[in-house]
Amino acid sequence: MSGFRIQSWNAVAPGLNCPEDWRNWLQAPYLLDTQLAKIPLKQIPPLLRRRFTELGRCAAGAALPLLEDIDSIPSVFASRHGDTPLTLSLLEGIAAQQPMSPTGFSLAVHNAVSGLLSIARKDVSEVTAIAASEQLIAHALMEAMTQLQEHERVLCLIYDVPLPELYQPYVTTEPFPFALAMILSRGTGECFQLAQQQSAVHAEVSELMAMMKCLCGLEEQVCFSGTRGSHWQLCKADPEQV
């Protein structure tokens, strides 16, 4: 069992730009757009801003409001699929025997978003970029908690965009782009515990929706069940237990 505190959090999705938006939507959900409205990212220089794809804009849009008064912070960037639309366009170009775009290739690697955000903020703190076929949120939190052993606080950023139609028959993902940014802390914030479970728990909503309900105070716990025998539960905790 591991405990930590969430000092602050922010999440973005089409039409949902702050915790209040999320809370209202979770209580009365409606169909969200499949594309994100363009996020200004005014904190980032224009020449660098142009390199942010929808995935990068979504991630940066969630993280930057939390980092306004923070010069440097170690970070965990977690995306299940990465920039799949960009990767697919590069593969289609190869199939058509077109020359590979160096810029496109550099932006398609899994740590591209973390690199761009680090450059934009001039933050040389360590960054970890991870992927997981399932339980992405749980794995991101575990990595961030590991880094809390050496740092006072850690940014944990989880983000994805819808898969291109070609891949949709093979995997279930959120039908809209999203990003969830959390600053985990050893000293301040709401207390949580992440504990391993013996058996899987059937969930009626996706892990992201369950996590957002917990952060918005609508649920007390989140279950992350996997198909490989690993199951986790995140729940709010007493400060004395963290």
Score class of each variant (00 low, 15 high):
L157E: 11
L166D: 02
P162H: 07
I130K: 06
P169R: 00
A108I: 15
R121L: 07
R153A: 02
P65Y: 12
L32M: 05
R121W: 13
P164M: 08
S125N: 05
L107C: 07
D71A: 03
L90N: 10
K122Q: 14
L47T: 13
T146A: 14
V76C: 06
E143Y: 08
L55E: 11
M100F: 00
L157P: 04
S79L: 15
S114A: 15
G93P: 03
L107G: 01
I158Q: 14
P169D: 09
D69P: 01
G104Q: 07
L86N: 15
P162Y: 11
I39T: 09
T34N: 09
P29I: 04
L116V: 00
L90H: 04
L31A: 10
L67R: 00
V154T: 11
T87P: 02
L47M: 10
T34E: 13
P99K: 08
L163Y: 12
L41P: 07
A140E: 12
G115K: 12
H151V: 02
L116T: 13
L141R: 06
Q97M: 07
Q135C: 11
I119R: 11
A120P: 12
P65C: 05
R57C: 03
P65N: 06
I137A: 11
E68C: 01
S72H: 11
F52I: 02
I130A: 00
L163V: 08
A78P: 11
P40A: 06
Q98F: 06
H81I: 14
L47H: 01
R121Q: 06
K122C: 03
G82V: 10
A144C: 08
S125V: 15
N111L: 10
E150F: 09
I119V: 11
L136T: 08
F105E: 02
G61S: 05
Y170E: 02
I73S: 10
S133R: 12
D83Q: 13
Y167S: 07
A78I: 12
E143L: 05
T146P: 03
K42V: 03
L88S: 13
L91M: 08
S106N: 09
L163I: 06
A112R: 09
S114H: 10
I158D: 12
I137M: 13
L26W: 01
V76A: 02
A78K: 09
P162A: 10
R50K: 07
Q98W: 00
M145N: 02
H81Q: 13
G104Y: 10
H151A: 13
R50D: 04
L88A: 08
D123Y: 03
Y167R: 03
L141Y: 04
L36V: 06
L86P: 09
S125A: 11
L157W: 04
L155Y: 14
Q43H: 01
N111D: 09
L32P: 01
E150K: 14
T146S: 14
H110L: 04
D160L: 14
L86W: 14
